[in-house]
Design a binder for these strands. Structure first.
Lengths: 336, 336
DNA sequence: TTTTTTTTCGGAAACGTTTGCGGTAGATTT
DNA sequence: AAATCTACCGCAAACGTTTCCGAAAAAAAA
């Protein structure tokens, strides 16, 4: 079907090996024949079969991105950063969505032992609390870089934001805005980010002598409708919180929806701050106070770190732990 | 490095071909040896080398998605739909972002002639006004399905929303809300969606006897800052419009930003409606009236259509033209 | 002039699969 | 009993590259 190296060789009256070397600009080939080959390749629009190359070279020029979801500004931005680097390096990007399902994550990880990719960029699902699939993958020699939702079970580079400090700052911001009963909302008890942010939350409460209340730490699922039901319960019961710290974007949005339905006024009756990467948090009604993560940069740094592995022939594992700062932006939802 | 079929064969005291056939559940192999092979494969966690398979079979089990950008709710949702179908079919998804740059698009299209993918899902860049790269790709035997931003230059299946009708409805909605000077904002004069939506816009004006004004049809770039500058000009000059129809999400957002800066009240002084797939348009200040596209479904249908090509051995080209309806949701920004 | 080096190229193996073809043993038919 | 058929399996070619190993010719060194 397509034009291959053999056709080029025949047309040029050269051997296959010479053509191959010419295309890779080998020093063993004279400048004149190199040009002949290049011209002919251009004329026939020759594209080397990547599968034959990969099979022979044991390199795929491909990386996999395994993430929980894509309809999420954080991950879209991260992919954007990853893809930017990949294009620079002439690499290809495969994406796999786990939809927060650990079984899918395991399936992907197992499959990726096949040699399909040279490396993996990954952010764990909310269900993941066992890391054998990652360990196996790494043991097969596939470099892994974790970003955002990480784990400590494997030795690898790790790119995150300063989750503890951000959690602390967000909570303190609510306290300084006058809140006394602050709820902490998150997705999973397994996620690294959830725990770090919660640590920050607890630490801030402690600093300001506010007793921590187990009932105010609430876990949600991946189902928006169910989540809003839980929030409705929380906000319509007695002794409801006067401040909410949502550790993921979608939970803050759900709070807005519920407050609108329950006629609860933000920020007068309830103050809200949330992690978010929406570019128009400022246009919400009221504008949403946020912790904004450097999502694009996180993706970019993760990819750069992966390529550092790939380009290093010595698998001398230099495991970096890169922490990029988030920024707190006070807005209307906390009374600013 | 990895465990391959030869090792399996040795361990099982079988020939390579028998192992291969057993794994593919061939009728030529007895049930008992099939089980032996399968057990051993599981035990060693054998994963067939996809590059060897692809080379031999001339099938990659991979599709490419070429889109302008990913930090855009429409495309995120579309990818979500595509990835869903791909997972069902056990296919892999490569993504390529053109960033609205036609040169990149051409580069990707040329590269994809290499056999890296079995098919391509594509939405054109705003700069694309020549389609030779698509024609060449298709001539190489790579099936293409276009979605959203399409062209008529190649014979292929096409998945869109009802852009003309939606443009008409949006404009008429503004007129019925009392607007008399309605601006049409879009990205590119080349895009199919822009033209269709503008046709709808013009048709609605005509129906209501409002003269079309060239000065009210404004093209933007991919640069948000520059765009806001243009909008500022438009809104601070004399004879400014009283209604805006933004054909892409980001332009509506830019309008909100400018109005906030210029202290223009929405919807009292200016009404806005825009194409958008934000799930929280209703939470904006004021809530944004939108035309919401079935983005997930568009991606899903596009992928399904591509697989219809791939599964059909007869390349009897059945070029479908699927149109999925968008819905107009009136909200605060048009006085609802 | 002879020897060594440099330059330039070709033959063939290898990467890990899939599959056409042939072949053996046993079962079935004539 | 011979002939045909079925079930099961192995050999080897092929997919399109890259690269090791030579090897011839030209150039340089001796």
């Amino acid at each position: 079907m397509g034009v291959n190296i053999k056709m080029l060789a025949e047309r040029l009256q050269l051997s296959i090996s010479t053509v191959s070397r010419a295309l890779r600009d080998s020093y063993e080939i004279s400048e004149t024949t190199k040009n002949r080959v290049r011209d002919m390749a251009l004329e026939l629009n020759y594209q080397a079969n990547p599968y034959a190359s990969s099979l022979r070279k044991h390199r795929s020029k491909t990386v996999a991105v395994v993430i929980p979801e894509i309809t999420n500004n954080f991950f879209s931005l991260a992919i954007n950063g990853i893809e930017y680097v990949a294009q620079e390096k002439n690499y290809h990007v495969l994406i796999y969505l786990t939809h927060e399902n650990v079984q899918k994550e395991i399936g992907f990880a197992n499959h990726l032992q096949s040699g399909r990719v040279d490396g993996v960029l990954m952010s764990l699902s909310a269900e993941t609390n066992n890391y054998d699939h990652l360990i196996n993958l790494k043991n097969k020699g596939v470099p892994i870089v974790l970003f955002d939702r990480i784990c400590e079970a494997i030795e690898s580079s790790i790119i995150t934001t300063d989750d503890f400090e951000s959690g602390f700052a967000a909570t303190e911001h609510l306290i300084e805005s006058g809140c006394e009963r602050i709820a902490y909302l998150d997705l999973s008890r397994y996620l690294s980010i959830s725990n770090k942010r919660m640590q920050g939350y607890l630490e801030a409460l402690k600093k300001h002598n506010i007793p921590a209340d187990e009932g105010l730490i609430i876990r949600f699922t991946n189902n928006n409708a169910a989540n809003e039901e839980i929030i409705t319960q929380m906000l319509s019961g007695p002794n409801r919180p006067d401040g909410i710290f949502a550790s993921v974007e979608k939970l803050a949005i759900s709070c807005y929806n519920v407050c609108e339905r329950l006629q609860i006024k933000i920020p007068e009756q309830l103050k809200i701050i949330g992690f978010s990467n929406m570019e128009f948090s400022s246009l919400l009604n009221p504008s949403l106070s946020t912790i904004t993560q450097p999502a694009y940069e996180i993706g970019k740094q993760a990819a750069l770190q992966l390529f550092r592995y790939l380009e290093k022939k010595s698998m001398a594992d230099v495991h970096e732990r890169i922490i990029l700062k988030s920024t707190l932006i006070p807005r209307g939802s906390t009374g600013f």
